[in-house]
Design a protein around this nucleic acid. Sequence first.
DNA 1: TAGATTGTTAATCGATTAACAATC
DNA 2: TAGATTGTTAATCGATTAACAATC
Lengths: 207, 207
Amino acid sequence: MKKGISQATIDRLPLYFRTLQLAADEQLQIISSDELGRRLDITPEQIRKDLATFGQFGRKGIGYDVHELKENIGKILGLPNRWRLAIVGVGHLGGALANYVNFSSLGFSVVALLDKNKSLVGTRVNGLTVNDASKMKRVVAANEVDIGVITVPADEAQGVADALIAAGVKGIWNFAPTKLNVPSTIPLVNEDLSIGLSTLSYHMSQE
Amino acid sequence: MKKGISQATIDRLPLYFRTLQLAADEQLQIISSDELGRRLDITPEQIRKDLATFGQFGRKGIGYDVHELKENIGKILGLPNRWRLAIVGVGHLGGALANYVNFSSLGFSVVALLDKNKSLVGTRVNGLTVNDASKMKRVVAANEVDIGVITVPADEAQGVADALIAAGVKGIWNFAPTKLNVPSTIPLVNEDLSIGLSTLSYHMSQE
DNA sequence: TAGATTGTTAATCGATTAACAATC
DNA sequence: TAGATTGTTAATCGATTAACAATC
């Protein structure tokens, strides 16, 4: 694990990546930290500092090669790994994620769906058959799943996380509004929608 | 707008709120910053510091009254306002949010759905009829919408944001993967799912 | 050459952590 | 009283911003 790189920096990399993608779509060859900053509302100094963490990608007096920088950031983010996802909990949110198109363009693909609800097992969602959650280990192995996506109720989330890890997933993307305990070797990202909504409420309540 | 309160602190308030809710469900009367910290993996000092920003809620030597602190944090977050949401873009994600149950327990309710796709207009989702997005102003006024939820493709998001603000919403919850320009008087929270997934990829790629 | 822009070091700012007096 | 725990001040740590030499 590379040390000394702040989460704040890592969180900005996907923004740089996306903006470079759009710039490439516009046939832009070269882009400056100034222009990148303008498009993202981030200071150019911040962008140069972030990039300098990983290497020297630009040319003084010129700027950054759009395509080259995009490729480099993509590699830093590990996007070429083409991660394979399994979604556990095929409710409304799980189903929506199964259909979400933005992920495939980044190199992620949903390869398996699981649910413990027998009435869902066997049905098809976005071309995938829902598997019985009790067959976690088999499904994860057969589909070479890298990432487990948790979209079950909060009180079932820890059990699902444990099962996913036992089955061999390498990372967890958690949508359940609860704190999960996972080994420090398993990266975990929490996507807690009610936090964002609550902080919006907070800001709307000021003045 | 209350100044000098960090976003980091505000982001932790919903976690405290939820944990207190669970503690209340367990009939717990009193809780210490130590116990709260244990349940959330946050240091007790951090919790006391956060709370001290807003007032004195505890009793030295004793701890915090669970119910009272929950109520106080709820008020700080503005949850008693019972905000009314309109979802623009009834695709998979918009539909999932329309059905999402966690919000109502926090005092949010989805009161209107809009989409520009004529084949969706008039259909019902979770008991609500989908309105034509071109009738934004009328729908927002008629339903007293406070918060606009944007679940349209990135290239349509700015237009939808402008229309929502013109129609009078007080805040925006944006799921489109793009930077939105809104007046500084309109609180905006971005919920960009691909950022979380990309940072997960980053961490999984280290070592 | 003059102008533009990076990469990097130094300065500043803000958030977290530690320490402890107050007090139940 | 002794033990527990808050609220708050001081110390530390880390992230952002500013400045500027290098160089295209």
